[in-house]
Design a protein around this nucleic acid. Structure first.
Lengths: 242, 242
DNA sequence: CGCAGTTTTGATAAAGCTCAAGATCTGTGG
DNA sequence: CCACAGATCTTGAGCTTTATCAAAACTGCG
């Protein structure tokens, strides 16, 4: 496989190596931050691109989207953050994207300074933080694969499966976000998202009613090889830190 | 801006917020790992997808590409790692992608166990490691933007500027990788990469001769707003750890 | 020189975007 | 309870970009 060809890589057209980037092993957060809780209205801005990054946030309930807006007005949705997930951690002292509530949302606001102190003193917490960063890196990498070499069909299928898995919804999903959000997340136009929903419905893979989606066929489920896998590596009660 | 509209996000078509994700502030590695050095032939495999992850690596000289191969034989290049960069760090105990030398390459092999110990005992090193992970996350996010909403033209321009910046090459770049590598990195076909090189040449933005590229116009340079920025946040001699 | 791999160019077709319009949904006020 | 307004969602037609297939030009090296 790619045996030492003088020069550069061979364009692989051979048979399969399992793709993969395994799903994160668990859903319950191992790290629970405690602090000031705030509620946000649907559409409310939590922080804005370029604003000083004083806090990180953990979702208590609801969903948050992180976005950036391009010069030309195009919007990119970098990710959706579900309950238990931590977001807002930056490399520099400012936020590199904006965060907005998708629907009614409740968050814990945790000062970055406190987080740094925590990471230094609490080995276990530090490991969790580290791990969550790697999870998000891997999630991004996986999405990358689907967006680079997938049709609209595959992207949307993957999105639905991923969401079902992350929210433990089984086969009935209540989408919290609009078609526009999905489009900007998957790098498609909202029209194409709509058409693709229709195509999935037509082929009997899903049924929809507004933002309710039902995954019907195992064909679509197998696309992600996820459902069923769950917690594995040992016991871990959530840790609550002050 | 996105004022609290009842319901969901507004499809932004308004004027610009600077896009952006600032460039990493510095090029010289602050963290230098010391250990067994190995040389690799062009095209040599450093590690393979799914193999146990026992080491992380730091590039001494040359370039490394990390890749995954899809079921259908499609290849994805996740990234190119330049001298000073650390790669191979995983969330789980196996590698989620393969790594191969692009051209003659020299690497330091550093046991993961040692890295973990280091991160726990050496606060400064831990911070560096953390930072390098965030850098790679942000780099991925930025690439994402260009790949999702950019034409082949913009993607390649961005790639060249990024590479020029990261290698401190100024305006004359010696590409270490093939058109195939670039194609799989940018989510294009190699033919399109070739055509786009030609288009850039035709418009007088670059000149090429094989893998030598010269950035001619400031127009292309401004695309990334990078050249010129450099080290800022305080003094930091490289740290060498055993 | 001639081979193997790489790069370029050309013709064709498909996927998805854009523009445009119609349908549905939701909340509000009469 | 109904009608209206604003937003969201769906569908259609034409067009642009890029992938694909095919083949020629180039490069480095034995």
């Amino acid at each position: 496989m790619f045996a030492g060809v003088a020069g550069d890589g061979v364009r692989a057209r051979s048979e399969a190596i399992a793709p993969h980037i395994a799903p994160p092993r668990r859903l319950a957060p191992r790290l629970v931050l405690r602090g000031l809780q705030r509620s946000h209205e649907p559409g409310a801005t939590i922080y804005t691109q370029c604003e000083p990054a004083e806090f990180v946030y953990q979702v208590v309930s609801g969903v948050v989207r992180t976005i950036t807006v391009h010069r030309d007005g195009r919007r990119i949705v970098h990710g959706f953050h579900l309950p238990g997930e931590i977001f807002g951690l930056e490399r520099e002292k400012i936020h590199h994207c904006s965060a907005e509530a998708v629907g009614e949302t409740r968050l814990v606001q945790y000062p970055v300074s406190r987080l740094n102190a925590l990471a230094e003193h609490d080995k276990e917490a530090s490991r969790e933080l580290w791990s969550s960063l790697l999870v998000s890196r891997d999630r991004t990498a996986e999405r990358f694969m689907y967006i680079m070499h997938g049709t609209a069909f595959e992207r949307l299928a993957h999105f639905l499966i991923d969401l079902a898995w992350r929210t433990r919804s089984g086969r009935r999903i209540e989408l919290p976000m609009s078609r526009y959000d999905i489009a900007d997340y998957l790098g498609l136009s909202s029209e194409t998202v709509s058409r693709t929903f229709t195509a999935l419905r037509t082929r009997g893979l899903i049924s929809t009613s507004g933002r309710q989606v039902r995954l019907l066929s195992d064909e679509i489920l197998r696309l992600g090889e996820r459902l069923g896998a769950d917690d594995e590596d040992g016991p871990h009660w959530p840790r609550t830190v002050p």
